[in-house]
């Protein structure tokens, strides 16, 4: 029996999870995945629990994924979307958290455009807080569903290699995946123009390159990040066309990769910008499996934090 328990714990980042913590979560996923495959996709596990989705940043898929996960476990799910313009002061952030805590929600799932806000809330309220993406910091449930998807395919990830491509500096998905993959024994290389590679990557045990055509030849999985179109105003690259020319995962590029390479994308995808349609829809792509697994991983987490151990 494992001595690990997540009951009542926050899930703020992958950084502070141990390898055993991660595996403990992943091991719980298959039985919840099975629930989603039933005709009646609902179990009474979390009946009477209240889950609050507190989203300060627009999100469709992560919020929906958490909502479906909660509902399949019979919890009551409340969605609160807060436009960032109406809450620009942390004072009201604090007040909002205090109010939700006073209404005795059982867990807060938080997304915010500023790194560290889930940590701030976790300090302010007694309830457990799950980080659903904070600024350019972390998106731990995304990384958990990504490594779960890879484990489903390969079993152990030990010794496997990953290439993450795109705007690494501003990507919470990249950070959480780098950490999770490293903890599970993978080698990770990140790829993008130097303007999108943050400093200090070497201290994370990560390689970096700007040469996508070369790097794609020696990896087991290619994870493409969503290109935020407005980012080129910050002089990170000259034009979307030039970016796509060097960093779009096209069928031609993919043919240089190893046999059996896996293509991932956290979504939502920009077809033709960072990934070509034929690749997104192709045989190597697990993009929709990621989405399916996202619900199962979030069900497992909610169960571990609110109910089980």
């Amino acid at each position: 029996m494992s001595s690990i328990s997540f009951r009542g714990r926050d899930l703020l980042d992958v950084e502070t999870l141990s390898t055993e913590d991660i595996q403990h979560i992943l091991d719980a996923v298959p039985s919840f995945k099975e629930v989603s495959e039933r005709d009646i996709k609902k179990v009474p596990t979390l009946r009477g629990k209240t889950i609050v989705n507190l989203f300060f940043e627009p999100s469709t898929r992560t919020r929906t994924s958490f909502e479906i996960a909660g509902k399949r476990l019979s919890a009551d799910v409340v969605n609160i979307s807060v436009s960032t313009s109406s809450v620009s002061k942390g004072e009201s952030l604090r007040d909002m958290a205090d109010n939700l805590a006073a209404m005795q929600a059982d867990v807060l799932i938080v997304r915010h455009h500023v790194a560290g806000v889930p940590h701030f809330l976790a300090r302010s309220v007694p309830q457990p807080v799950i980080n659903a993406g904070d600024g350019a910091h972390e998106h731990p449930t995304q990384a958990l569903l990504d490594v779960f998807t890879l484990q489903e395919k390969w079993g152990s990830l030990q010794g496997r290699s990953a290439l993450i491509v795109g705007d690494i500096a501003s990507s919470r998905v990249a950070r959480s995946n780098v950490l999770a993959m490293r903890k599970l024994g993978m080698q990770v290389c990140v790829c993008g123009p130097p303007t999108m590679l943050p400093v200090g990557l070497d201290q994370l045990g990560v390689e970096s390159t700007s040469d996508f055509d070369k790097a794609i030849q020696s990896t087991d999985v290619v994870m493409m990040l969503r290109m935020q179109r407005e980012r080129h105003k910050d002089v990170l690259f000259p034009s979307l066309a030039e970016y796509a020319g060097r960093y779009c995962l096209t069928g031609e590029r993919l043919r240089r990769a190893r046999e059996g390479v896996v293509v991932m994308h956290p979504g939502p995808i920009n077809r033709g910008v960072e990934i070509a349609p034929e690749v997104a829809d192709g045989l190597a792509s697990v993009i929709l499996q990621q989405v399916t697994n996202g619900v199962a991983v979030r069900m497992a987490l909610l169960y571990l934090i609110l109910g089980g151990g």
């Binding site: 950084e15 790194a115 560290g116 904070d134 600024g135 350019a136 910091h137 972390e138 500096a169 919470r172 950070r175 943050p198 400093v199 200090g200 990557l201 201290q203 994370l204």
Partner: peptide, 13 residues
């Protein structure tokens, strides 16, 4: 400060 810690924390450096 822009460095390894700001990279981990995801804060602009």
């Amino acid at each position: 400060h822009e460095g390894a810690v700001s990279t981990i924390l995801g804060l602009p450096g």
